[in-house]
Design a protein around this nucleic acid. Sequence first.
DNA 1: ATAATTTCTGTAACAGGTTACAGAATGTCT
DNA 2: AGACATTCTGTAACCTGTTACAGAAATTAT
Lengths: 327, 327
Amino acid sequence: MTTIRDVAKKANVSVATVSRVLNENGYVNEDTRKRVQEVIQELNYKPNAVARSLFKKESKTIGFIVPDITNPFFPALVRSVEDYINQKGFTIILSNSDENPEKEKHYLDIMKQKYVDGVIMVTNTLDHEQISTYSMPIVLLDRPIHADVPSVFVDNRLGGRLATEHLLKQGCQRIAHIKGPEKVINADDRYQGYLDVVGKLPWFSKQYIVSGNYDKNTAMEVTKKLLQNHPEIDGIFAGNDMMALGVLKAAEQLGIKVPEQLAIIGFDDIDLTEMTSPELSSVAQPVYEVGKKAAEMLIHLIEGKNLEKKQYIFDVELMERKSSKRL
Amino acid sequence: MTTIRDVAKKANVSVATVSRVLNENGYVNEDTRKRVQEVIQELNYKPNAVARSLFKKESKTIGFIVPDITNPFFPALVRSVEDYINQKGFTIILSNSDENPEKEKHYLDIMKQKYVDGVIMVTNTLDHEQISTYSMPIVLLDRPIHADVPSVFVDNRLGGRLATEHLLKQGCQRIAHIKGPEKVINADDRYQGYLDVVGKLPWFSKQYIVSGNYDKNTAMEVTKKLLQNHPEIDGIFAGNDMMALGVLKAAEQLGIKVPEQLAIIGFDDIDLTEMTSPELSSVAQPVYEVGKKAAEMLIHLIEGKNLEKKQYIFDVELMERKSSKRL
DNA sequence: ATAATTTCTGTAACAGGTTACAGAATGTCT
DNA sequence: AGACATTCTGTAACCTGTTACAGAAATTAT
């Protein structure tokens, strides 16, 4: 490995001068600059980022903690964050937390030890206080925790309303909801949106709400039971698209026609909504913008600037496709 | 930030002793050890990983370069690698290359500057020589480049054969192939497997082979044209599942019944094969094992051990589902 | 010509760990 | 008791950049 001292020696200057050339700061004579740069070329010298980090207490690296990258909702988020921070010269350390608070803390510790400049994370197990003990820039994605913690998410409740209203408008008489996991805030918000629309209707009953864990197989199981017990159900709003796929599957296995006998709508508008048959209606999140905004906020914090707002809430959009169109 | 010197001062020992306690090497008196550990607890001291990296020339970090994490094939790979290396105390820096050699080199440079201990990458744009100039452990995933570069992949040609034979056995008379991108080796191997089975049959014609870029929309377009020009086609082997989904979509739009009029099979067996209607047949790769093996090899190389084999080729498995079952 | 600036360069300390080496204390063996 | 090995601890150099500070050289102002 060539070091800055090798370059300095070969160019007959001090390491300080080489450093000045590298960082383009301070005064350097034009001839000297050229000579140093030639030597850098010649030796193919690349400065050691670790040594630089040690002194500057920064690493040009950010952490990104997601529950599980295998969940098709997250890769797009990761991608949009990378696209943004990359042009700012940062790289990403990616970790999967499995929604496990111990893992989350473990990774935050490691990231801090590695001098990451900031962290973007998707969590609902940590609270405001735990997060602030890390005293480094942290931006929450997808799930807000506290008004004081910078976060970016979408209006899930509105989304729940839009989806449910849409089913009503399509003429559904009994609308069920497959809810996401217990402690996940956005699942609860979507559920609230559903309640906003149908909670007061005469036919409404808590029996039309079942839990599905954001997972297609669980959703398929619970939907089958639900439909067998309640054949009157003619519309289902699933808390996310993976569960909506499970619902679709359940309907198919029970020989129920979608959308004629059962209208279905999901949430997230992941890529494969267009690949199913019938195509799946959904509530779209502007995933790319959400990721980008989180990245922007984090870079802002890292650069020591103030945030205009601590929370950004994006609008959602109803995507009407065949699985719910009965008119 | 508390440093090792703070701990040393408070515990009335030298930094060397604290270091010995931290790393559990060298001689340390039991009482001293306890005292130091109490101080570490008390100050909540966490050693600075950057300083350690600088001296040890290692970072407990590996790089992982994928073409695009948004492609549903890669997250599972990333996950399995993370699960393995994590228990060895490593973290992952993830980067998307978009199959662009400049980006790949750029990221390799950065990773090297950050002292990553090794890199796992999915590429076919770099050659043996370029890779070896980086003089750090690199393991290739999914696409081999040269027998000397450690790599893990599956028997794509066999997979191509299995898929095509399966279609033959289902009674298909004219089998087309939607091929992956030009320069991607595994796409070519799958294509060769297809040729192995049907290349010598009397009906065979190059017209039954079209290029689809591993992408569902492109695949849908080309398939529509193909089927319009060649209504005699009654079986399609798509180079990957995303393209198979495009084929499925094309058939639906043309009013062609799957599998009765057209049998379809894909490759990779990504999660959503079970979510389509009809469910998609595919050739399954043991993704989790492939990722794990690559991680194992990399850790081996990092630890300076010798590899038993430079290349590991995993078997594939035919997954027969409804999209191809005509019997 | 002298003073005041500005440009240019080098020395050495610093970031926060690890470890070679030396020396002291303790234990074991004739 | 003396020779030797073993245990324990500290000092200081090292990893590789960055930068404060000082001093020299060149330029501009008076």
